[in-house]
């Protein structure tokens, strides 16, 4: 597993992360991410066969709330920080495709 990351990889990742990076940034990140990943691969020195992945450092489970309705913010507070609004709605440039994942 090579730690190097190609320019193309960087472009792909930038697209996934919705960052319209400049050419100079792509160049810079290609080098930097490569060396960071190379360092990170140090983890491979360790045998983790049979080790449980630790997603939560505290052993907690079943944190649930009762189904009770609470007051919402109201339209004005909801939209107070909106870069653009139209009436009671957030306003965005027209969405042409329907790529909602839900």
């Amino acid at each position: 597993m090579g730690g190097r990351i190609s320019r193309k990889d960087v472009e792909k990742v930038a697209k996934l992360g919705r960052l319209q990076l400049s050419d100079a940034e792509i160049e810079e990140f290609t080098g930097q991410l490569g060396s960071i990943l190379e360092y990170v691969e140090k983890m491979n020195e360790l045998d983790t066969e049979g080790v449980e992945p630790l997603a939560h450092c505290l052993p907690i489970s079943n944190i649930l709330r009762e189904d009770e309705a609470k007051e919402s913010l109201g339209t004005e507070k909801t939209l107070a920080n909106a870069p653009q609004r139209e009436g009671e709605y957030f306003k965005v440039p027209k969405i042409l495709d329907d790529s909602s994942g839900v």
């Binding site: 990742v13 360790l46 983790t48 992945p53």
Partner: peptide, 30 residues
């Protein structure tokens, strides 16, 4: 911030999850 978003996105992306993210969770346990 961009650098870390890039790094994290890469670590979770298809084909790299096991090698980076999952491995890291295991070493975290150690």
């Amino acid at each position: 911030v961009k650098r870390r978003i890039m790094l994290g996105t890469y670590a979770l992306s298809s084909g790299y999850y096991d090698a980076y993210y999952l491995k890291a969770l295991k070493v975290r346990n150690l």
